[in-house]
Amino acid sequence: MGSPFDINGGACVAMVGKDCVAIACDLRLGMQALTISNNFPKIFNFAPSTYLGLTGLATDVNTVSDLFRYKVNMYRLREERHISPQTLANLVSSSLYEKRFGPFFVSPVLAGINQTTGKPFICGFDSIGCIDFAKDFIVSGTASDQLFGTCEGLWEPDLGAEDLFETISQALLSAVDRDALSGWGAQVYIIEKDKVTQRLLKGRQD
């Protein structure tokens, strides 16, 4: 058995556009080469325009998403406000680092729009919470090598919401088609200032 990151498979990507951000994931859950489910979303909502994608070991995708649901709910009750993407990023970082010597095997990707400044925000993390602040795109999962290639080739600055949707969808679908452990449909979120659009991509089912 290889790395815990490669057992279940899965891919996630986030991109910045003009006054919008996008985050997308595949839907596969597998055990090595065997596919268990083709409806296993990896993106979770934590505030009106803030989403967190989790790839890696499926059990930790479940555990970590449950953990942040708890933490963000407690934050919202205590502070009577929604958590901002930047604050959530630091919460994710400190929570993952807490498990420095027994980490969760996940590679989170965060995308959102800061409601105070109106500015898009994306970032990625390694499994022990080191933040990667990127201005363009973040990739993670078993198809991350492929995603780096497709994103590098397709992404350009200041894409509008519709163009960003096309770009991220093509980047993800092309990447997962070249990865045996990802695919089986995809979920895409396009986040604008006061609107979020969720789309389901069928993708190849083989």
Partner: peptide, 9 residues
């Protein structure tokens, strides 16, 4: 601050 990297309100 050690959790959110900002000071409390």
């Amino acid at each position: 601050k050690r959790i959110y990297n900002e000071y409390p309100p």
